[in-house]
Write a protein that binds this DNA or RNA. Structure first.
Lengths: 338, 338
DNA sequence: TCCCGTGAGGTAAGCGCTTTCCTAGACCGT
DNA sequence: ACGGTCTAGGAAAGCGCTTACCTCACGGGA
C-alpha cells in the first residue's frame, strides 16, 4: 500500500506489451489487437487496480469533455431544480458536470469562471441571476468572452450582460401575473417583498409588478417594496416590517417562494388576514398552509434547455429561448370583500 | 477568435523570457525575479488572456488538491444541507469540491468513485447511505480501498461496509426516539413509512423503532411497515395504503421528513386524525401544517465533520464520530385520549 | 589577479497518457 | 521463389506545465 498510483507503463510492463497497445486495449480503440494480449492487459489492469489518470488523458487528447455549471446555491430549491435539469442533459451526453456555488458573490463567480476555464471544460452554464451593476457585469462578460475565444461554449439562464445563447424565464411577465392576480382579486393596497436589488431577476420581476400596478391604476410607493435576500428568514423579517408599517396592506407579493413561505410563517401569529403570492412554484408551495399561490416557472426544463444550448455547436446568431411563467392558484390568495 | 488556448509558451515568447521564468512569476514562486520581467510577463498574461491549463498543472505538480463528494441527490434537502457543510469546509481549505449524484444507484456510485479517483482528488466523501446488500457493499469497498491504496483519503457518513474514518448519525437512537415519542403519547397502533429497504439508513432507523416497540410492549407487525422511496410522493402513496388497510392506526412514523410531508398531505383529505412524526428536521418541517414533529439531525455539522476527517491526515486507527439525534416536538403529534 | 560565492535566468527532464508514424512478419498472387 | 499488400504491435513525439539543475556575469575577499 504505497501511496502511488499504478500507471499505464506499469500495466504495460506487467502484461509485457508496449504502452501503446495497453492504451489501445483499455480505451477500446478501433485498432485490432490479438485476444491473448487483450486478456493479459486486462488482467494486469485488474491486478494493479489501474485507474487512468484523467488529467494526463485530458492533456494528451486535448478534447474537452466536462461541462461547468455556476449557480448561486445548489441547496436552494430553486437552483436544485434547475440543476437537476442541467445534470440530466449533461449526463445523457456522457459528460461530468462540475457544479460551483457562487453564493451570489460576483467575485466568486469570476473565480469559478476562470477555474472552469482552467479545467478545460467544453461549456459553462451560468444559472444564477445576472447583476445590474454595469461594472460587475462587464467584468464577468470579459472573462466569459476570454473563455469563448478559446472555443468554449456558454449558455446563460436569465438576463445577463453577456450576449450569446440564453434561456430566458419570463420574469417580467411573471411579476405582472402575480400582481395582476392580487389586484384583480380586489386587493388595492399591496406590498412587495423583493429580492436583492442588485440582481436582474429582482429587477425584472419588479418591473412586471409595476406594469400591473399601472394597468390597474394602483399606487405602489417605493416604501412598500421591501428588499430581502430571497430566503425564508428574509421573508419573515420583511413581513414583520410590512405588518408594522402598513396597516392597510391586505396582500403581499413575494418575489420567490422561500420568502413567501417566510411571509406565511410571520403572518401565522399576526391575527390579520393577508393574502400572499409567491414566485417559482417550488415543491413546498403545495404543502404549506395555506397552500401557496405562486407563479410557476418550469425550472427543470429551464436547466435542460440551457444545457442543450451549451452542448450544441455555436450558432451564427445568439439563440434566445423564452420560457413562459404561469399562475398557479392555491389557498393563500382570496378575493377581498369590501 | 481562433479556438485555441494561449499557453505558457506563448506568454513567455510574448514577454521575451523562458517558460520557467514565466511560470515562476505567474505562480509567485519564491525565486526572485527582476521587476521589469515580472511586469512584462504580467502584461503578456493580460493581453493574451492566458489561463493556465489545470490538467497540465496537475500532471506536473502531482499534488492533489480537489476533493470529491458522492451524495444520493443534492437537490434532496437532506443532502443539500449536508453538502452545504461539506462545501463550507472544503472551501475554507481552498479546495474545489466535485459533487456527484448517485441517485441511489450503486453502479453509478462505483463509476463516480473511479471517476474521482481518475481525477486525482485528494479525498472522497461518501455522504449517501450505505447498502445492505453484501455484494454491492463489497464491490464499493473494493474500489474505495484501491483509491486509498494510492494515498487517497476517504470519509463516509453513516454506516458503510468500508472501514475507515466515518461520522455516524445516530439513526438507531433517532428511530427509537421517534417511536418512543408516539408510544409515550398513548398511540399503541402505529404504522411506519420506511425508506428503501436496501439502505442501511432505513435499516438502522427501523431497528430503533423496533426497540422502542419492545420496550413499550407494542406489537409492530411487518405489514405495518411500508417501504417507500424517501420522497414526498412515496409518503403520499404509503399513507394511502396505511389508511386503507389499517383503520386502527392513530399515528405514523415516517423515516424522513419528505415522506412525512407526503403523509400530512394524504391525511389532509382523509378526515381521520392521525399523528405524524418525521425524521431529519428539514427546514420545511416548521412550515407545513400541522408543523411537523421530527427527529433532528445536525446535517450541516455532519457534512462539516466528514469533510474535516477527509482532509486531515489518516490516523492509525479509523476515527468514528457519533452525532446524536434529538426529538423536536411540534404540532403533528399529540396525546391520544382514550 | 584569481577564485569562489551568489543571484538571475534559462535548459530540459519529466508528469501519464494518446496517437502518428514505422517496422517486421504473414500472406497473397504469379 | 519473389515482390507487394496487409497486419499487429512498438517507438517516440508531443499535450502544457513545474522544477531541479545548470550557466553566466558580477563582486568581493585574499
Amino acid at each position: 500500500m504505497s501511496p502511488v498510483m499504478a500507471t499505464l507503463a506499469d500495466v504495460a510492463r506487467h502484461a509485457g506489451v508496449s504502452t501503446a497497445t495497453a492504451s489501445r486495449i483499455i480505451n477500446g480503440s478501433p485498432k485490432p489487437v490479438a485476444d491473448a494480449l487483450r486478456a493479459r492487459v486486462l488482467a494486469a489492469v485488474a491486478e494493479l487496480k489501474y485507474v487512468p489518470n484523467a488529467h494526463a488523458q485530458m492533456l494528451a487528447r486535448s478534447h474537452r469533455s466536462a461541462v461547468g455549471v455556476i449557480v448561486h446555491d445548489v441547496s436552494d430549491p430553486y437552483f436544485a431544480e434547475i440543476t437537476r435539469g442541467l445534470q440530466r442533459v449533461a449526463e445523457a451526453d456522457g459528460r461530468l458536470a462540475i457544479i460551483c456555488n457562487s453564493y451570489r458573490e460576483p467575485d466568486r463567480e469570476l473565480e469559478y469562471i476562470d477555474l472552469l476555464h482552467a479545467h478545460q471544460v467544453a461549456a459553462i452554464v451560468i444559472a444564477g441571476s445576472g447583476y445590474l451593476d454595469a461594472a460587475t457585469a462587464a467584468r464577468l462578460d470579459d472573462r466569459l468572452r476570454a473563455f469563448e475565444a478559446t472555443g468554449g461554449r456558454i449558455a446563460v439562464i436569465g438576463r445577463h450582460e453577456h450576449t450569446g445563447d440564453a434561456v430566458m424565464p419570463d420574469n417580467e411577465e411573471g411579476g405582472f401575473l402575480a400582481a395582476e392576480h392580487l389586484f384583480s382579486l380586489g386587493h388595492s393596497d399591496i406590498a412587495v417583498i423583493a429580492g436583492p436589488p442588485a440582481l436582474t431577476t429582482t429587477a425584472d420581476r419588479l418591473t412586471g409588478v409595476r406594469r400591473a400596478a399601472r394597468k390597474y391604476r394602483r399606487r405602489l410607493p417605493k416604501e412598500r417594496i421591501v428588499h430581502a435576500d430571497f430566503t425564508r428568514d428574509g421573508g419573515v423579517a420583511a413581513t414583520e416590517r410590512i405588518l408594522a408599517e402598513f396597516p392597510s396592506v391586505t396582500a403581499i407579493a413575494a418575489l420567490n417562494d422561500s420568502m413567501a413561505v417566510g411571509a406565511l410563517a410571520a403572518l401565522r401569529g399576526a391575527g390579520r388576514p393577508v393574502a400572499v403570492i409567491g414566485f417559482d412554484d417550488m415543491p413546498i408551495a403545495r404543502d404549506v398552509t395555506p397552500a401557496l399561490t405562486s407563479v410557476r416557472l418550469p425550472l427543470t426544463e429551464l436547466g435542460e434547455r440551457a444545457m442543450r444550448l451549451a452542448l450544441s455547436a455555436a450558432a451564427d446568431e445568439p439563440r434566445v429561448e423564452h420560457v413562459a411563467a404561469e399562475l398557479v392558484r392555491r389557498e393563500s390568495t382570496w378575493r377581498l370583500e369590501d
